[in-house]
């Protein structure tokens, strides 16, 4: 080989070896290898402070699969679509999770982060606009608190507090028959435990019972309006979504409470509202299911309580509520 030929070969070698790998990688990326088809949308998750989901606004069509490649740019996140049955998937830092969703009904859906990623975790949300033939628009009934005209922000202390913790087990025993009007779902959801207690107390059916025993009956009414399955489901939803602020024991002292308080103070300047204490009988026994459901659906409006309306289905809200009352009643 001549000197010139050797040099030419060397230059070619240098270029191929030094640039071949990076260029091949970039071409592969642009050609979409790994990403696959163009219909795939790549979504990057990041802390809400760092921008949340990107892109955060998606469109889809009824009946057509929406293919997503999800990755996180910082910490562990999760992905789920609110008001739907699609299972949540983890979105791990620097890894890609693929998922495919097909919508049956048109509408505006919210996707959200399912793994706690800081005090602004709940702000990590995006929307999916699903277009499609609106043949039979689902009749959306307004939430119960709207129908009942409840003021969600009014204080609701119970005017009567039991001396001992009410127990549904004990309440199931006494021979007192529960008047039929108290057993209907509509009645139960519209009334607080304290109101039910007063009504029962006034009822001739419970004339024989002591006050505490009436409370046991109230606890029984509450249990009758839940199922073991809904309690399990409620407990799961609570642990995943509520416990970080409201605490594992419901006492309002979750691990996020401190940083939430400092953030609220910084944001609004006023003394921060603490996460609600579900072990406080005055609060819990003075609120009707409809009221608490309203708070969950609408959120706390400046208290740091997220709005869960677009995320939890109605049955999920009832499930988590049935679990909430186990903090004050057995």
């Amino acid at each position: 080989m001549t000197a010139k030929g050797a040099e030419r070969a060397a230059r070619l070698t240098a270029i191929v070896l030094a640039l071949g790998l990076p260029v091949a990688a970039l071409i592969a990326r642009w050609a979409g290898w790994g990403a696959g088809r163009d219909s795939v949308i790549e979504i990057h998750g990041a802390l809400a402070e760092a921008g949340g989901w990107a892109p955060a606004d998606l469109t889809a069509t009824v009946g057509e699969p929406l293919r997503l490649r999800l990755t996180s740019d910082d910490v562990m996140h999760g992905f789920a679509v609110g008001q739907s049955d699609w299972p949540a998937v983890d979105v791990a830092p620097g890894e890609v999770t693929e998922t495919t969703i097909t919508f049956n009904r048109p509408g505006k859906y919210v996707f959200y982060c399912t793994r706690w990623c800081g005090v602004n975790h709940w702000r990590m949300r995006g929307t999916i606009e699903v277009a499609g033939p609106t043949t039979s628009p689902a009749i959306e009934s307004p939430p119960l608190y709207v129908t009942l005209g409840l003021d969600l922000d009014a204080p609701h202390p119970a005017d009567v507090i039991p001396e001992r913790r009410p127990s549904a087990d004990r309440g199931a025993e006494p021979g007192a028959t529960i008047p039929v009007e108290f057993s209907t779902g509509e009645y139960f959801r519209a009334h607080s435990p304290a109101e039910v207690w007063r009504a029962l107390r006034a009822s001739p059916a419970s004339r024989e019972l002591a006050d505490a025993e009436v409370w046991d009956v109230v606890a029984f009414v509450w249990r009758s309006n839940s199922t073991p399955e809904s309690l399990v489901e409620g407990k799961r939803i609570y642990a995943a979504n509520c416990a970080a602020c409201h605490g594992e024991t419901g006492a309002g002292n979750g691990v996020m409470a401190a940083s939430l308080a400092s953030q609220l103070t910084a944001e609004f300047g006023h003394g921060a509202t603490k996460p609600a204490d579900f072990t406080d009988p005055a609060k819990m026994l003075g609120a009707s299911p409809a009221l608490l459901q309203g708070k969950i659906i609408r959120g706390g409006m400046g208290t740091g309580m997220p709005y869960w309306g677009p995320i939890l289905t109605e049955s999920q809200t009832w499930a988590v509520l049935s679990y909430l009352w186990t903090f004050v009643m057995d």
């Binding site: 070896l17 640039l19 990076p22 990688a25 830092p93 620097g94």
Partner: peptide, 23 residues
Amino acid sequence: SIALGGFVFAIIAGMVGTPVGSR
């Protein structure tokens, strides 16, 4: 030259790859 390829690739990866260092 191979080391240079790895070096350039490391630069490209740092610029266009995931911002998660461990990945």
